[in-house]
Simulated scan of single mutants.
Amino acid sequence: MKYISKRYLNKAITPMAESMNHTYEYEDLIDLSLGDHDIITDIRIIDKAFEDTRNGHTHYTDSLGYLELREKICDYYKYEYSYELGTKECMITTSGCHAMYLVLEAILDDGDEVIIHEPYFTPYKEQVEITRGKPVFLKTYEEDKFKININNLKKAITDKTKAIILNTPNNPTGACFDKDILQEIANICIEKDIVVIADDIYTLFMYEDEFIPITTLDKMRERTITIGSFSKDYAMTGWRIGYVLAPDYIIQTIRSINENSVFTAPSISQRAAIHALDIRNKVQPPIKDEYKNRIYYAYERIKSISNMSVIKPRGSIYLFVNIKKTGLTSKEVVDKILNEAHVLTISGEAFGESGSGYIRIAVTQSVDRLKEAFDRISEMNIFKNKNYIGV
């Protein structure tokens, strides 16, 4: 251990890595842990990308990414949101997660505070810390549908606050922030001169309202950094392709940092992203319909199981399930579900303190597989007996 940096010496295994370790434990395992689709990338995207590969797209690209791809992303925002972007305000990255690291590395000085609304996507805390920032957690609550309380947000702001990370539709809770709450957040950020890092990863998965990028609100363009990804919205997790939208001086800084990391996103993945955008109106509706069907099926099943409850889903591909009535901790429930039902989920505590008493279920399996999973879960003693008291 003597060669390990002191920053990492006592780091525990991450919840996601731990979840991956469990995937090999049972032959009949149903994996509802990670947000990785069972759906493969549309074959038309695959065929076009590999045709491009055969035709020579196997080299480095511009370090900002293919100009053609950046143009198509700009066109997408103009078409979908009437939002004008220049290609110098867009950079292609090796996934949304890598984009977040690059953004934080570019904007944070030592000790700068970053507000993270909790429950939060697990890597946020570590990403802020490794880029020398200080995470400040803003708890949200089930009774508020996990939406940000504006008064609590104001209390979390200090003279060291540099940025706030917003994630809607939210992983893990599925919370969706409507225009009114986004505007309230925007007003505070304008008043206090705070940067918004909008982690817009699940924009396709809004089941009741239309998605609104906070960067499109008045006076937010100059203080918003948007992170996008093809992983979830196009079923392209393994291609590892994302992007950043920001003022050009921020993009240039991120570009310089990335030249010391991976230089460019993979050319083949960028070609796939180009073709995904070209046929998005054919590719995306079936994905959205499938997940809407799955998430409402899972919602109805959970409502019928004792000692489980969940708010009505509005977005994302996750359900954040309340298991407090079992009397057990989140991890104890996750372990029981794994060992007794052979269904893999993630403990709510992986998403911050306010995740205690919850588990996250990803509806990344077919309805038939979800049915099997919930049939097994419903037969467990902790969920059959309304009067069960955890021991």
Rank of each mutant, 00 (worst) to 15 (best):
residue 1 M to C: 13
residue 1 M to W: 13
residue 2 K to F: 12
residue 4 I to G: 12
residue 6 K to W: 13
residue 9 L to K: 15
residue 20 M to Q: 15
residue 20 M to I: 15
residue 21 N to L: 15
residue 26 Y to Q: 03
residue 28 D to I: 08
residue 36 D to I: 14
residue 38 D to G: 07
residue 48 K to V: 09
residue 50 F to I: 14
residue 56 G to F: 15
residue 57 H to P: 04
residue 58 T to H: 12
residue 59 H to V: 15
residue 62 D to A: 10
residue 69 L to P: 01
residue 69 L to G: 00
residue 75 D to A: 10
residue 78 K to G: 07
residue 80 E to I: 11
residue 82 S to Q: 13
residue 91 M to E: 05
residue 95 S to F: 07
residue 96 G to S: 13
residue 99 A to F: 01
residue 104 L to A: 01
residue 113 E to W: 05
residue 118 E to Q: 13
residue 127 Q to G: 04
residue 135 P to W: 06
residue 135 P to E: 10
residue 137 F to H: 10
residue 141 Y to P: 11
residue 150 I to E: 05
residue 154 K to S: 14
residue 161 T to D: 08
residue 162 K to A: 09
residue 165 I to V: 10
residue 170 N to S: 12
residue 173 T to F: 07
residue 173 T to C: 06
residue 179 K to N: 14
residue 180 D to M: 09
residue 183 Q to R: 09
residue 185 I to M: 04
residue 187 N to W: 06
residue 189 C to H: 08
residue 192 K to V: 14
residue 195 V to K: 02
residue 199 D to P: 02
residue 211 F to M: 11
residue 217 L to H: 02
residue 218 D to S: 10
residue 221 R to S: 11
residue 222 E to Q: 11
residue 232 K to W: 04
residue 233 D to R: 02
residue 238 G to S: 08
residue 240 R to M: 08
residue 249 Y to Q: 09
residue 251 I to W: 03
residue 259 E to G: 06
residue 263 F to M: 12
residue 269 S to F: 06
residue 269 S to E: 09
residue 289 D to I: 06
residue 292 K to T: 03
residue 296 Y to P: 00
residue 298 A to R: 00
residue 308 M to N: 00
residue 308 M to C: 02
residue 308 M to R: 00
residue 310 V to R: 00
residue 320 F to C: 03
residue 331 K to Y: 11
residue 332 E to T: 10
residue 340 E to N: 04
residue 340 E to W: 00
residue 341 A to D: 01
residue 342 H to I: 05
residue 358 Y to C: 10
residue 360 R to W: 04
residue 363 V to R: 01
residue 368 D to I: 12
residue 370 L to C: 03
residue 370 L to K: 02
residue 373 A to F: 04
residue 374 F to N: 01
residue 377 I to L: 03
residue 380 M to E: 01
residue 382 I to R: 01
residue 383 F to K: 00
residue 385 N to W: 12
